[in-house]
């Protein structure tokens, strides 16, 4: 491996690194928002919209992001909706992620034990109060491990953005490989860049998981 080649590529990687972080951040924020909304619609069994949310979750969880992006980027312009590549990427990530996040939240809410629900009902809480004071606080804590796993997964999914020519890490690395025919160096840098993002994040999320678990239940 040639260190000087790697050194020269650093500025391009830094730019791509920042873009990857930014797209991930906005996409995951969107995913959490979409996920919470869908999960609430499902929890309260809101007429019609609850069903829509369920169909959406199943549809997006069971189709690849690659295909979703192709639709957004190549098929939507045909019907007159033309969006910049990065917007497509963020929307794709938010809606793919939203379906996973919705499942994460729902799993947490469903994990609250029946006896806790009984205890809440027994003191006269109505449906909304039961959700607000018993199900959501406890269920959210239970859903944190799933949400954390989704965050890691979604960051890795940004590598697929390369197919719609967003200059994030994977796209940048593959470009450089194509230009200079030095695959070892650039691919090594690519792996390193993802590791720099994901390993510390993974550690932080593990600590967070433990914190919320001990914080609210203590055992």
């Amino acid at each position: 491996m040639d260190l000087s080649i790697m050194q020269q590529a650093i500025p391009q990687f830094v730019k791509a690194f920042e873009l990857t972080l930014w797209l991930s951040f906005v996409g995951i924020l969107g995913a959490l928002l979409v996920g919470v909304c869908c999960s609430l619609l499902q929890y309260f069994k809101v007429p019609f919209l609850g069903k829509v949310a369920s169909v959406y979750v199943e549809l997006f969880r069971n189709t690849p992001l690659l295909i979703q992006l192709f639709f957004l980027y190549y098929a939507f312009p045909v019907i007159g909706i033309k969006l910049p590549a990065q917007v497509c990427g963020i929307i794709g990530l938010a809606f793919l992620g939203g379906s996973y996040m919705a499942e994460g939240f729902t799993g947490g809410f469903n994990g609250v034990s029946q006896s806790q629900l009984d205890a809440g009902k027994a003191i006269g809480l109505n449906k909304f109060q039961l959700a607000r004071y018993v199900v959501f606080p406890q269920g959210f804590t239970l859903s944190v491990p799933a949400l954390a796993a989704n965050v890691i997964f979604l960051i890795k999914e940004t590598s697929i953005f390369s197919v719609i020519a967003i200059p994030e890490l994977t796209n940048t690395a593959l470009d450089l490989v194509g230009l200079y025919y030095r695959s070892n160096e650039y691919l090594f840098m690519l792996v390193l860049a993802y590791a720099i993002i994901l390993i510390p994040l993974s550690i932080i999320l593990t600590i967070l998981e433990r914190k919320v678990r001990y914080g609210s239940f203590g055992n």
Partner: peptide, 18 residues
């Protein structure tokens, strides 16, 4: 409404842990 007038205590206590 009615449950406010009918208190209940369970075998498994079921205090809210949070």
């Amino acid at each position: 409404q009615l449950r406010q007038k009918i208190g209940m205590v369970f075998q498994s206590y079921d205090l809210f842990p949070n």
